[in-house]
Design a protein around this nucleic acid. Structure first.
Lengths: 332, 332
DNA sequence: GTGAAAGCGCTAACAC
DNA sequence: GTGTTAGCGCTTTCAC
């Protein structure tokens, strides 16, 4: 049997209440008694039981994190941002991968409620009404990270995906590209929809007619990039530039093009998205949209702690800045 | 105030004990009463409080996972294996990154004990006596994943790192390589020590004298690979083959060599370690040692569940098989 | 500044 | 098959 607050109280000749006060840093304790208690704690090797504390106080200092796939670089980086801030504010993380499956997401959320988490950070493809309903009826705060809720009812942290792609198109056109392909991800999430809209509007802005053959539906993997470039290069007219919705696909595009004897960027410009570490692990190095994953995670968690501590939060829908980093996979 | 087991009991006209039995799938309940209770649960929207249950039963069905860095591909993959098996056995994961810092590791472990986790999966560079002491005195099972404890006191799941590198050296020599460099990671973990020993013994086996200039101390990053190859290529005689302790460094080596105008593998053979997804995201594709990260995670978690359920476990120190996968960065 | 006592929501004997 | 009851280890009024 492990040592409890009661044992400490007895050892220190005080009441349980006083021990509790000491543990929790309550100021209303005489320095001498505090010392006595601390000594007893040390002597007995007392370790507070967070479960009992959670039951009594109705706070567990743990937050749930629902993530599509922790083995995905992009999300892992986000998770690290979440974790670091959580640690800073003394929260623990309960982590679960959902594989973007709505039922699983809802189940996990429910499980986390059973565990009495104080709040949840949610990452996922799309937010349905069902999600919103579940979140709102849960009585705990939920923050979306790199995930958009079109109803704008749930606090979230994102970048402006639409503008990011729009900007890329402009940039490409400035460098003389006229045939611009796009390899999307098939999730049909609202993020992806924004990107596609940005692509279309970017073309229109530059008086280039949108051609649906210039879009290939990928799944954010390297292999999809290879398939995408092979497919797009068979179209007539061929693209002279290809944008992708993830860096990993962009690497596939570069290698797929090179495998066909093309030179990047002379024969084909390539632009990625995210600026994961992959972007510099390829020759030529990848021009890409910088999405601050770590920061998105960190800011989401910070936002959650604010809500948890009833601090004032100015904006519920945070948009972090993005930028394009020019490397060697596009023309100078 | 949320609905409790007591409310359900009242609603269904039974005792709390019966409700508890129904929730926990206890068979000693008449089907009709079970139905009544289930109906009441449904009606009231009752959700069991896992914290209260944890306090009463002294089991939380959550396990702690201490990991060096969740944003590292290698560990993220391990984590996914752990998670999937945990989910299968209805355990939750409390995840924390330690940055391989001993104090942080010990602190995290302590925090997890406070949270009353049922067990812990630990990943880290080296296991000191302090670690072993903490683990053994905790009264909860700990399993090491991709982490070796030289004292052999803690259950663990690994591959045979020594043989893996030894095999690589043999393979390289078979293909005619005589000058073989190695880019290590500076952690001086016992895993890295095994690898270095495998390297030395592999050379000796083939009557090649060990030359300390052929070892470069890296930190498993792409950049370290580039620095490593630059350094090694300045030695006299130059290496004709370079092995690394991680795939990411191997990519750095390949690109570093190519940046100097060398051809891989004609001018330089390169072998990685781990077989992360990176291995095929480079040209030429990387010959590497297959370390089954996901499986290591999964097997560790399975091992932990066995201990938790008092099932018999045959071997405490599991060694999973490894193999070398030949791709294009080494000579045929 | 400190103590007494009533829970927090559930499980687990034990009794019937 | 079902109910009673005593905790699990802590926090939190409320007195003093």
């Amino acid at each position: 049997m492990s040592v409890t607050i009661y044992d400490v109280a007895k050892e220190a000749n005080v009441s349980m209440a006083t021990v509790s006060r000491v543990i929790n840093g309550n100021t209303n304790v005489k320095p001498t008694t505090r010392k006595k208690v601390l000594a007893a704690i040390e002597d007995l090797g007392f370790r507070p039981n967070a479960v009992a504390r959670g039951l009594a106080s109705r706070k567990t200092t743990s937050v749930g994190v629902i993530i599509p796939d922790i083995s995905n670089m992009f999300f892992a980086e986000l998770a690290r941002g979440i974790e670091d801030i959580a640690t800073m504010y003394k929260y623990h993380i309960i982590l679960s991968s959902s594989d973007q499956n709505t039922n699983k997401e809802l189940d996990l959320f429910d499980n986390m409620l059973e565990k009495q988490v104080d709040g949840v950070i949610f990452m996922g493809g799309s937010i349905s009404e069902e999600h919103v309903k579940a979140f709102k009826s849960s009585n705990i705060p939920v923050v979306l990270a790199a995930t958009v809720d079109e109803s704008n009812e749930i606090p979230s942290v994102n970048i402006d995906y639409y503008s990011a792609i729009f900007d890329v198109v402009n940039r490409l056109v400035d460098k003389g590209e006229k045939q611009i392909g796009y390899i999307s991800n098939s999730s049909k999430s609202s993020i992806e929809n924004s990107k596609i809209q940005g692509y279309k509007d970017g073309l229109q802005e530059n008086k280039i007619e949108f051609d649906e053959h210039m879009i290939f539906d990928g799944d954010d993997t390297y292999q999809a990039g290879i398939e995408g470039v092979n497919h797009l290069l068979k179209q007539e007219p061929k693209p002279t530039a290809i944008m992708t919705s993830s860096d990993e696909m962009a690497l596939g595009v570069i290698h797929g093009a090179q495998d066909q004897g093309l030179h990047v960027p002379q024969d084909l410009s390539v632009v990625g998205f995210d600026n994961t570490r992959l972007a510099v692990m390829v020759r030529p190095e990848l021009t890409t949209v910088v999405q601050p994953m770590y920061d998105i995670g960190a800011v989401s968690m910070r936002l959650l702690t604010k809500v948890l501590k009833n601090e004032e939060v100015k904006e519920q829908q945070v948009i972090l800045p993005h930028r394009i980093i020019k490397r060697s996979s596009t023309k100078d």
